[in-house]
Amino acid sequence: TFYNFIMGFQNDNTPFGILAEHVSEDKAFPRLEERHQVIRAYVMSNYTDHQLIETTNRAISLYMANL
Rank of each mutant, 00 (worst) to 15 (best):
I18E: 10
T55P: 01
V43F: 07
M7W: 03
N46D: 02
L62T: 05
A20R: 06
M7F: 03
R31Y: 07
T1E: 03
A59M: 08
I53D: 03
I6P: 00
A28V: 06
L67M: 14
F2C: 04
Q10R: 15
H50E: 12
F9M: 06
A59W: 04
L67C: 10
D12T: 15
T56C: 13
E33H: 03
Q37A: 11
H22Y: 14
N11Y: 12
H50Q: 14
I53A: 05
A20N: 03
Y3V: 02
A65R: 09
A20V: 05
E25I: 10
N66G: 13
N4I: 10
Q51C: 09
A65F: 10
T56S: 10
P30Y: 04
I60C: 06
Y3R: 00
A59F: 04
A41F: 08
L32S: 12
V23D: 03
I39D: 00
M7R: 05
H22D: 02
M64C: 09
V23F: 12
H36M: 12
E21N: 15
L52R: 01
K27C: 08
I53M: 07
N11P: 04
T1H: 05
H50P: 15
D12F: 10
D49C: 06
S61G: 10
E21C: 10
D12S: 14
E54G: 06
V43L: 07
D49L: 05
R40W: 15
I53N: 04
Y3W: 07
T14V: 03
Y3A: 01
I39P: 00
H22E: 04
S24C: 08
N13H: 10
P15W: 09
E33T: 06
S24K: 15
Y3S: 00
S45K: 13
Q37E: 15
H36R: 04
A41V: 08
P15S: 10
R58L: 15
G17D: 03
L62Y: 08
A41T: 09
V23H: 02
I6V: 08
L32D: 15
E21G: 12
E34A: 14
E25S: 15
P30H: 03
Q51M: 12
H50R: 12
H36A: 14
F9H: 05
Y42F: 04
V23Y: 05
D49P: 04
P15Y: 08
I39M: 02
N13R: 11
Q51P: 05
L67Q: 14
T55K: 03
N13P: 13
M44D: 07
Y47S: 02
M7P: 01
A65E: 12
M44E: 13
K27Y: 08
N13T: 09
H22P: 00
T1W: 06
P15G: 07
Q51A: 13
L32F: 14
F2D: 01
Y3F: 10
M44S: 08
N66T: 14
D26R: 05
D12P: 07
E21T: 15
Y63C: 04
F16P: 03
E25M: 15
P30T: 04
D26N: 02
L62I: 11
F9W: 05
V38Y: 09
V38K: 07
L52P: 01
T14G: 15
S61C: 13
N4H: 11
